[in-house]
């Protein structure tokens, strides 16, 4: 009994984590590995008519439009809902329509950050 249980505890995670087995009778120990996956870290730069660039605070500008995640004022952009481009279009709605917004964003994966949008410019006046 001792050895059967010991082998179950020793070999179970190896089967799941090394051999990529998918039998969930055996427990893998991968804590919090999926939390935050798909989260977008974005920077929005307002390109004004006079050529100046201003970094936008989307938390403030879109307050009330995001779904509030917790009691504190933090807003999460997810790549599944249009991601940073969708947020840029919403920012256009509250800015001067002649201007543009440059997006730089990265998305969280289980293996680290991956570039999401690399300098794409959204013209606010475009339909």
């Amino acid at each position: 009994m001792f050895f059967a249980l010991a082998v179950f505890m020793l070999a179970g995670p190896a089967y799941r984590q090394v051999l990529d087995g998918d039998n969930r009778v055996f427990r893998n120990w991968v804590m919090f590995s999926a939390i935050g996956v798909g989260l977008v870290d974005a920077r929005f730069t307002h390109l004004t008519e006079d050529g100046s660039e201003v970094i936008l605070n989307h938390h403030e500008l879109l307050a009330g439009q995001y779904r509030k995640v917790r009691r504190s004022n933090i807003w999460l952009i997810r790549n599944r809902n249009g991601g940073a481009v969708d947020v840029a279009r919403r920012l256009c709605a509250v800015l001067d329509p002649i201007t543009s917004i440059r997006i730089e964003s990265r998305v969280a994966t289980r293996r680290g950050w991956v570039t999401d949008v690399d300098g794409e410019i959204v013209n606010c006046g475009a339909p």
Partner: peptide, 25 residues
């Protein structure tokens, strides 16, 4: 499970911190 560049370079903790504390930026 944490021995990969995505964790050791701080990316995963950064994403967790943003997710729970400061949001997307």
């Amino acid at each position: 499970d944490k021995v990969h560049p995505g964790f050791l370079e701080g990316d995963r903790l950064e994403a967790l911190f943003m997710y729970y504390y400061i949001g997307s930026s």
